[in-house]
Amino acid sequence: MADQHLDSMSVHRLRLIGKRLGIKDAQELNRAELIDTIEEILEERLDDRLSKNNEVMSLKGKKFDLFDDLCTEAVGEPIYDLPHSYAETSVHMILRDPYWAYVYWNINPKDIEVIKETRGTYSLVLRIHEFTHPRLPLSKCRKSFDIPIREEDTSWYVNLLDLSRWYVASLVAQAGTWSETLCGSNEIYSPGGYWMERIQELKSDQRELDLFHAAVTDLSGHEVDSVLVKSIMEELGRQDDKEQQS
């Protein structure tokens, strides 16, 4: 499908596509080489895409599957620039899944100027605070850890170490013994769930186990796409193995 598509394009267009795909020597390749290399990359990208999709998402994609996107740059349509920043110092946390949060931030250049003027050399850290209860002040956190960041960084994926905990991120400027919290984020909760903490109980109660299996596995035994379900199933499997061995 793609080869006919690419065949109909000018070398100039193929080079543009090659550049977008990250082919370093796109300008030097001839037409046939360009088509071969582009096809190879497109194939890999498709495989990547399909392999990371679960069934629902994979089929959902068909709805939008009209054409090969790389070949359809609309001519003359403006591509609007996005604001470089929103002139404020703020940090936000978004829970992506029970173990990962996406943290993005923005530092008002004026705040940086003030720090530079008063403190000279400084460093920045993203501090992740973990709580056992919601809405506590930062000082009451159960534990925290720092991620050094650079001035040009604007986001980070943060691994949440424990389930069933609340998390807040803050941006901290440091210089020598001095440090200042520039801003704090919203609070997020990393869910665990009843059975995550009671896998043994689940295993010992046949009715509960049957209900659980009937909810999260299909007819071929594949489980629902959820990291927590997978870890419960793995733990159940491990316990089964242990029992068999003993």
Binding site: N54, M57, Y189, P191, D225
Partner: peptide, 16 residues
């Protein structure tokens, strides 16, 4: 109920 979706990994990773 708990945080969930029917997307990849059962949560938000398709959209994030």
């Amino acid at each position: 109920p708990a945080f969930s979706s029917w997307g990849n990994d059962g949560y938000c990773s398709t959209w994030l």
